[in-house]
Design a protein around this nucleic acid. Structure first.
Lengths: 187, 187
DNA sequence: GTAGCTAACTAATGTCATTATTAACTGCGT
DNA sequence: ACGCAGTTAATAATGACATTAGTTAGCTAC
């Protein structure tokens, strides 16, 4: 088990993703990742730059995965109104991979080209959906920001247990969808 | 300086709030708080139960402060349409005290009565504002969730640098306000 | 097969939270 | 004035973590 365990950046990132999804992003430590891979933590430094670097890789991994999933869902038939499909896909991903989702939202400190690019791709998908409402470009960009805000905030408050009351979440999703759709139409 | 430094829960919480606002919530450590107060970290245990307990106290402090500020703003003349006043107050608070705001959103693990109560008070204020649109009770509660989601998500994405593009934030706020107002009216 | 690269190791340092224990101060009653 | 009880801060110690440096051992190309 000891020498040549066969580590690489990808397996380390996946291990980190698993821990993040199971225990939360803040529980991702090099010690745990190493333990999971049957290796001592300093060995990880042969492949990654340290914990912040690993979290950054996880963020890129997450944004790219989100982009893939959401884009796929958008193109899956829901032609005329992709908005609901995209919103649902967004929320589904955030629930399925909570830790990875969380990582994906944290913009790296030093501007990371790769993360930025992946993030922009995701925005493009949302922009395509909003375009159906025929707004001017600037208004569409603002609208995408509002849409992202609502989705992200919903995920966060839900996850944090911020919605104290025993009120059906699915219904809230429905209200959010209706409110946003009507709101955009009125811009 | 050594014996009887005059610590108490309040001064410790304020010190933690300062660090959270200046360096971020995750930078709040007992070591830093103690250093700031001119004391060794174990001394803090005479007043608080540990780091998680301190963060919890910070959360309660934050929710209560938010409630006070937002309620005050709502009652300050903007009678007929308090929604904009409340939204603005929310965003202003989140910008002015980023660390405290962040703490306020984290529901404590073991259900904390005090936090829950303070949090409910805040929801009541938002509910009062939404009530102006004359919805049934359940719809109003869902709407408050959506409103909170949008505000919280906006704050988070903005803070995380998630809005990559150089697009005026004030305008986005404006769009968010219009979109939500129109959206609620259409429910 | 061996030279050199790479990947994993051990050892060591420093930061942190936390617990147990001890010493010093404060206020109170006498 | 004096001492006692409760409180507050201290030191000492433990254990988890990230990170760096230096070392060893496997792999690969010649």
């Amino acid at each position: 088990m000891s020498p040549r365990a066969g580590l690489d950046v990808s397996s380390i990132t996946i291990a980190a993703a698993d821990i993040a999804n199971e225990e939360g992003l803040e529980q991702v430590t090099l010690a745990k990742v190493a333990r999971k891979l049957g290796v001592r933590s300093p060995s990880l430094y042969n492949h990654i730059g340290g914990l912040p670097d690993l979290i950054e890789k996880l963020a890129v991994y997450g944004v790219e995965k989100m982009h893939t999933v959401i884009k796929y869902e958008m193109n899956s038939g829901h032609g005329e109104n992709g908005l609901k499909a995209v919103m649902t896909a967004y929320l589904t991903f955030a629930r399925a991979e909570p830790g990875v989702y969380e990582a994906a939202q944290k913009a790296p400190e030093q501007h990371n080209e790769v993360w930025q690019a992946a993030s922009n791709q995701l925005v493009q998908v949302l922009l395509a959906v909003v375009a159906a409402f025929d707004l001017e470009e600037k208004a569409a960009l603002h609208t995408v920001r509002v849409l992202r805000s609502a989705l992200h905030g919903f995920v966060m408050l839900d996850r944090a247990g911020g919605f104290g009351l025993p009120l059906d979440l699915q219904e809230t999703e429905e209200v959010m969808y209706k409110l946003i759709t009507a709101g955009i139409a009125k811009l």
